[in-house]
Amino acid sequence: MTLLSLYDFAAGPLFAFSFSVFALGSGWRVLRFVLLARAADPAALKGFRPSWALKSILRWLVPANITARENALMTAAGFSFHLALLGVALFFSAHVVLVDLAWDVSWPTLPDEAADWLTYLFLASAAFLAWRRLSLPHVRALTTASDWLVLALTAAPMLTGLIAYRQWGDYDLFITLHVLSGNLMLLAVPFTKLSHAVLFFVSRAVTGSDFGKRNVGAW
């Protein structure tokens, strides 16, 4: 198999497969929570307070919470990391063109220069997160091998994408690595802590509802 046919495979059938696993698997993770909660206690869902759940989610989707106030640097790194990743994945022109070619749907794109800067911002945030894991003793003590693996899985498509776009190395090689690592990241979402992509909302909703019942604020 040549590099280019590997690329075609990774960007075609493999991507369709990875994306399906990502979407269905993530959906299943949410559904599984609801089913398990209901099996344990049919009344549990009746006590759910949607408005408190929503308040809690919003307070953490925009940084309006106690951690943002007391740990501003980590909050900045976390937001840069996530927004840059989503921004480049969804709005980089080449990505949108691929979707347009495949399914004939399109949406506005980021200027390439902005995507470039977002990628640098992402890599800087990722480096900060890695540095933090290594240098803060209490974070180092918590860190497991899977934390490094997941960070690497997330950073790899951004790094290889940048190298390919900038043509710093062998373009065919890096664009293939880029698409392969992107697939791997999507595949990992339902099976690792990356599932927080969807379970963040479930977890915050549960806690927001619990705290709401006690009238102690939408943490």
């Binding site: 209490h138 802590k193 599932s195 379970l199 977890s203 549960v206």
Partner: peptide
């Protein structure tokens, strides 16, 4: 159950919880 599985699986081990803990604050 549902909550245990949810929370054990999504803990990012970021350590931000340390800020809120009186054990950690008094003896880090």
């Amino acid at each position: 159950g549902a909550r245990l599985k949810l929370w054990m699986e999504i803990c990012a081990r970021c350590g931000l919880c340390a800020q809120g803990c009186h054990f950690f604050q008094s003896d880090p």
